[in-house]
Nucleic acid binder design. Structure first.
Lengths: 344, 344
DNA sequence: GTGAAAGCGCTAACAC
DNA sequence: GTGTTAGCGCTTTCAC
């Protein structure tokens, strides 16, 4: 099939290509009759508008760049799912880039997106990012930028995150109310605001309920199922008393559960557990895992809608950026039903 | 920041813009000295190549379209993860489109990708697609097309799938060898080759081991956790004897497990179970779920590499398309350890 | 209501 | 080794 342009349609109908262009774009000054003729001819010839040419000329690509650490993490793929759905409904396409949790690849990604002349960028930063670096380029070029979940708050860009502080607080408060007293928190060594916030929530909840803050009960490492196991081994071998664990995310919690089972420590009666993120497996494992839901789909949709507003508004960095914090949702399952044996 | 073009660099250095263009593209005929000067100036002025302009002129966008049902399904997000990683390493970007399992949205997606002048399309078809429809447009335009997992074999396009027949056979064979005799298969009503193949494998394995094929033991519905539960209720209420279940995918298997537990039927001694897909939760649930791994990351990488070959080769539809079938991997866990109580 | 013409920022063929 | 020139297929301003 030969590629057909508006010129071919123009020749076919013996009118000029500018009339064709206008007809195809539903320009008001074109008669209904002409429009119909043009559209019929376009269909007949198998015409497809060349978006590249129109982007070059108009300066708008109708593409937005989405930069995430990795689609292999369900949290991100779920948010991207939401973003693409909404963007798609509004006439935008999504150009995807994964940083693989490396700020270097992230910088390369921003460069690629910028070169591709995306109309905007939605991003969630890599775990090892130290400075705002290349992100500033986006702002300097006056291209809309928005963050979700992991944001750079120094930059004047809007963001949609969940309230991690509140999530940490809720999780800890739930354990306290369930009757647990020596609550361990497992967190990350690496420097990411969301994890710090969760820990801050943990600490404040303890304080609010008059429980002592014991630094021995805060364990730091690199999140993973195995790290969860290690933590349990570590605590028990050091004979540190504890009756509940709040982990920074669900996989670590799962490691904790597995190791406790190995050591025949009853969940939830001897040790209560709550994770964070509401991974799919939480409702399927035994005992089912209490957790904090992050409203991933809602986050994707919310950031996309926010972004569309920005695009319409035009002046992206004039006013203070909107920072939306979604409420985390406490999901209580079997793993934190309370130490009912404690009175024995 | 004003947008800077090769013309600005040319003025700055008092040379012509074509020299600048060549220098930036590392053209061999340009002196090392000039190249360095140009690159330094580009850096200094904050130049970014306008990919849109270069795509328009060269006819290559260096973007490939990826069309999948939904990123909310871990199988697809995992494959897309692999595709993007490889493409990215080879200088291509990924334009993402989700069909949401609707062939209408899929058609719209193909149109969008074609309009965006992607250099190729990698797709996995929607579950309700009946004809090859718009996919033919891609081929007619001589744009490389490749499928993964769910393909349209009528079209002359390469594909990477797993050998679903073999997977079905392996799963069934495993149950037989473990000692189960009355093996149920739960499959889909909707018409998708991959599910039919799994069933064909099931049937052939029974035959190969001299077990009778009982149509009562083949249940059809819409895959879901709830459907798994229903199947168990259905079988037990109709008092149909069975001692193992092979489900078309893991979530359905999970429903089966949950319902068997409710009815206090022991797994794996009274009933053995194997799923399909190796979802993340399989190793975390209790009992851990035997399943068939689909090599998702490998599939993504394989299809991407295959695709890059196509792009280099140039003549996309001249020869018979390569259809790569990856071997499924049997993963044996607790849920199918065999009916050791049967001898009691 | 339609036509004419310019130009978006590059690539690449042809000069010298 | 570098300059000249002609588009790629649209959008958009200015005519009439």
């Amino acid at each position: 099939m030969k590629k057909v342009t508006i010129l071919d349609i123009a020749k076919e109908l013996d009118i000029t290509f500018s009339t064709v262009a206008r007809a195809l774009n539903d320009h008001p000054a074109i008669s209904k009759n002409t429009k119909e003729l043009v559209k019929a001819a376009a269909e007949r010839l198998g015409y497809r508008k060349n978006k590249i040419a129109s982007s070059l000329r108009s300066g708008k690509s109708n593409i937005i760049g989405v930069l995430v650490p990795s689609l292999d993490v369900s949290f991100f793929s779920s948010v991207v799912h939401g973003i693409e759905s909404i963007m798609n409904q509004n006439g935008y396409s999504v150009l995807l880039y994964q940083s693989q949790e490396s700020y270097k690849k992230e910088d390369k990604g921003i460069e690629t997106l910028l070169n591709s002349r995306v109309d905007g960028v939605i991003a969630s930063i890599a775990i090892n990012r130290e400075d705002s670096g290349t992100y500033e380029d986006i702002i300097n070029r006056n291209i809309p930028l928005a963050f979700f979940d992991r944001s750079l708050d120094d930059l004047n860009a809007p963001s949609v995150t969940i309230d991690d502080y509140k999530g940490g607080y809720m999780a800890t408060e739930h354990l306290i109310k369930a009757g647990y007293k020596n609550i361990v928190h497992i967190t990350e060594t690496r420097n990411l605001a969301i994890f710090k916030e969760r820990m801050r929530g943990y600490k404040d909840a303890l304080k609010a309920y008059g429980l002592p803050l014991n630094e021995d009960l805060i364990l730091k490492g690199n999140l993973s199922l195995d790290f969860g196991k290690e933590c349990v081994k570590n605590l028990t071998s050091r004979k540190i008393p504890f009756d509940a664990i709040f982990t920074l995310e669900d996989f670590t919690a799962m490691g904790v559960i597995q190791q406790l089972k190995v050591q025949h420590i009853n969940i939830p009666h001897e040790v209560g557990i709550i994770g964070f993120a509401n991974e799919a497996f939480g409702s399927l494992v035994s005992p089912t895992l209490s957790t904090i839901d992050q409203q991933t789909n809602r986050m994707g949709e919310e950031i996309a809608l926010q972004f569309l507003k920005m695009l319409k508004a035009g002046d992206f960095y004039k006013s203070a950026p909107l920072r939306i914090k979604l409420d985390p949702i406490l999901i209580i399952r079997e793993s934190s039903q309370g130490p009912t044996w404690e009175n024995i």
